[in-house]
Design a protein around this nucleic acid. Sequence first.
DNA 1: CTTGACCCCGTAGTGGGGTACAGGGTCTAC
DNA 2: GTAGACCCTGTACCCCACTACGGGGTCAAG
Lengths: 139, 139
Amino acid sequence: MVTTEPTLTIGKVAAAAGLGVETVRFYERKGLLVEPPRSQAGYRQYPAGTVRRLQFIVRAKALGFTLREIGELLDLRATPGARCADVQSRAETKIADIADRIEQLRAMKRALGGLVAQCGGRGPVSQCPILEALDEVAP
Amino acid sequence: MVTTEPTLTIGKVAAAAGLGVETVRFYERKGLLVEPPRSQAGYRQYPAGTVRRLQFIVRAKALGFTLREIGELLDLRATPGARCADVQSRAETKIADIADRIEQLRAMKRALGGLVAQCGGRGPVSQCPILEALDEVAP
DNA sequence: CTTGACCCCGTAGTGGGGTACAGGGTCTAC
DNA sequence: GTAGACCCTGTACCCCACTACGGGGTCAAG
């Protein structure tokens, strides 16, 4: 006997995942969600598992994955012969990526910090060391 | 006597600043460059100082300022009574901003690093701790 | 049986930072 | 005088992740 799972409307899955209805439809358009069956009236009828899928997306986003990458992870999860190592290497690439961004930001912060220290906040902008530094030919 | 400064075409200023012609026109549309005088034929005629202004933009971008913020800095520079402290406080805000972003990224990196370590790369995706973690109800 | 909350679709707008045409005119060197 | 490099405008397009809106249909409570 086929136990018919109770289904959820888009408003329910969205609320359960902490998202807006428009966002869920947007994820569907992006291919992150399979198109669900529809009711007579054309309403989307989601199985309960969709909430978990949405939460997966939300959490992966929090870890710095783009929607495209999240789509790849979801596909990978559904690929029969896929290996754990595939997922791991994506995570490692992302870690390297994040490390790069941190280094970039640290360099910016150092440079700005040095300028602020030189400036001291006194005097007119015409003598501001920050603006002068930005103006110099050799940065 | 008025010494007429030699002027530069858009291609020259763009090349001198390491930008594309389209990008320079884009900056003009964004209000970062004053509309320069035109030749008989309608060609933009830039004074040499424009190259420095473009380089200012390029360097400020490298320090993490958005184009909007760069526009504000340029305006500030041209404001008679503006104080160095104004520039300094913008720089400090930007530093705090960058520090926030670094912290965000570090948290992502830590979380991902932990998952990668748990994973080890062995086994099928169906038992991948990374995917399982993303799937868990309480992250 | 009506009201209000929900759902549908398609399209367009946001912001940030550009890039790419198309369909012209101009300038320079040979 | 002509080829090729340069310039002009305007519009459209790219990525990214949404968000909003108009103009409808539907469903449940009172």
